[in-house]
């Protein structure tokens, strides 16, 4: 699978929950894929009009393909993602989290130094000491031809989603027990 095929695949996967756009500019920087998702959690009482609380979660995914990933390219991108926090995230009283995912797609195997920088990258910003939520940055490096995904700690929770070829789901213990009982 090459980078272009991977973009199509990712567009399809993200499309279930995100608004996805191709070749989209964020702060005058072009990305091959841009996806945005807003989730509102509410607890209400009796009627939907009587809201006890609300918590909003936002996610922005910025995907860019590179022919080759150098240390300079990577640092430029991470700096940009940090800058993007201030323009993309609009904290308010019901804002809980915003997550900006920077996805790098390359065709060649990255150097160990690049992998190290990606895996060690960490960024979190709290708004009004966390009372208006916080923002995290996920950094994900995908090599579609080699079916490889490298990511920082925050992105581990979504790592399987970005695998070009998903590994078959592991059977749960309950399912295994059911199968044994059936047999």
């Amino acid at each position: 699978m090459d980078g272009s095929e991977y973009l199509t695949l990712l567009e399809k996967r993200l499309g279930h929950l995100f608004r996805v756009q191709r070749d989209y500019s964020v702060l005058e920087e072009l990305f091959h894929l841009y996806a945005q998702c807003e989730i509102q959690n509410e607890r209400y009482f009796g009627s939907k009009n009587v809201k006890l609380w609300r918590a909003d979660n936002y996610e922005y995914t910025l995907v860019r393909c590179y022919e080759e990933m150098t240390q300079n390219n990577l640092l430029e991108l991470t700096d940009f993602l940090k800058q993007a926090v201030d323009s993309l995230v609009k904290p308010h009283e019901e804002h809980m989290t915003s997550i900006i995912s920077g996805v790098i797609v390359i065709d060649k195997e990255p150097t160990p130094n690049i992998i190290r920088i990606v895996e060690r990258f960490s960024y979190q910003k709290a708004f009004k000491m966390g009372l208006q939520g916080w923002c995290d940055i996920r950094l994900i490096l995908v090599v579609p031809p080699l079916n490889q995904v490298y990511c920082n700690r925050k992105a581990k929770e979504v790592k399987p989603f970005y695998h070009p070829v998903k590994s078959p789901k592991k059977k749960s213990l309950i399912r295994k027990i059911r199968e044994v009982l059936k047999s």
Binding site: R43, W53, A55, E93, E94, L131, G133
Partner: peptide, 8 residues
């Protein structure tokens, strides 16, 4: 008054 993710 505090956001729900902090305590509730």
């Amino acid at each position: 008054i505090a956001p729900v993710w902090i305590l509730l």
